[in-house]
Design a protein around this nucleic acid. Sequence first.
DNA 1: ACCAGTGGGTTGGAAAAAAAGACCCATGAG
DNA 2: CTCATGGGTCTTTTTTTCCAACCCACTGGT
Lengths: 162, 162
Amino acid sequence: MTVARPRPCSIANSLAVIGERWSLLALREVFFGVRRFDRIAANTGASRDILTTRLKKLVENGVLAKELYQAHPPRYEYTLTEAGLALHPVLLALKEWGDHYVTEGEAPTVFRHDCGAVLHPRTVCDACSRPVPPDSARAVRIGGVPQRSAADSPGAPSPTDT
Amino acid sequence: MTVARPRPCSIANSLAVIGERWSLLALREVFFGVRRFDRIAANTGASRDILTTRLKKLVENGVLAKELYQAHPPRYEYTLTEAGLALHPVLLALKEWGDHYVTEGEAPTVFRHDCGAVLHPRTVCDACSRPVPPDSARAVRIGGVPQRSAADSPGAPSPTDT
DNA sequence: ACCAGTGGGTTGGAAAAAAAGACCCATGAG
DNA sequence: CTCATGGGTCTTTTTTTCCAACCCACTGGT
């Protein structure tokens, strides 16, 4: 009898690093170019002590780096590491979804892409550059468990009980 | 003197709906085809009471729908609404980031795209279909505040103090 | 009829996390 | 000297979360 342990999963792993309250909002600020504690606190609304522990965690996990910009009263700026920059798609996806399904009225934040158009991100397959609707992705393996590739009836694509 | 109120932001709005612990993992399960309470609880590791309130909230916010599949002992399945399906890019982005920067070893979950290749999502501009690196997006407006369109060097794109 | 099992919760108490706000320290400006 | 700024820390109170147990309405087996 298998004990029900949670599914191994990169989404869960990601959330363990950036999934706590305020973490993503702090990262949003750094993406916006706001790199100092006070401003991040003010713009997110996070309380200072929580923000301190979140930033520390993000630094420990290599998402942010702390850079000294003034010695003596040592003062730091938080900057994005490579891993931090790689979160851009996550934030864009969340913003797009929020604009569409949560925020009422105009989107509070708007970007213009290099190409000149207002930015709306779209997710495509890296190999073929075509869109990836939910049903265009077949599971090869879920949570470490190989999926039968056979014709699973639509609507019940291999529930993966484990 | 402006009182520091948190920035209006669709990312924050999104997180208010799906940002609590377990919410995204529950949604992941529904995307995987796991639609019933017990299985979702087992596969995520969430405790039942928390899962109850999370699912209720997701239903209230129109991300999931509850469908009766058996009367009498009334039993429900949770299915994705249009808004729920639209979260696919968010989950893909989180999975991709986790695979890359958090999970050690092989990715626990792998999808194959319709095109035949193993799925790696990429985010592109909907208008020009080109990639969207962090510095290719210029702020038109952030948190409701218009940005000066002048040449802000990347990395310091108008700190938006509000 | 009796019993175990399944599905979807609810309840109560203990433990952990977050919020709010005061406090601290070093430096620089007026 | 005093105030303001930046980056925290400390304490107290309020919220959440976790955990395990319990409940109810069946269903299927014997």
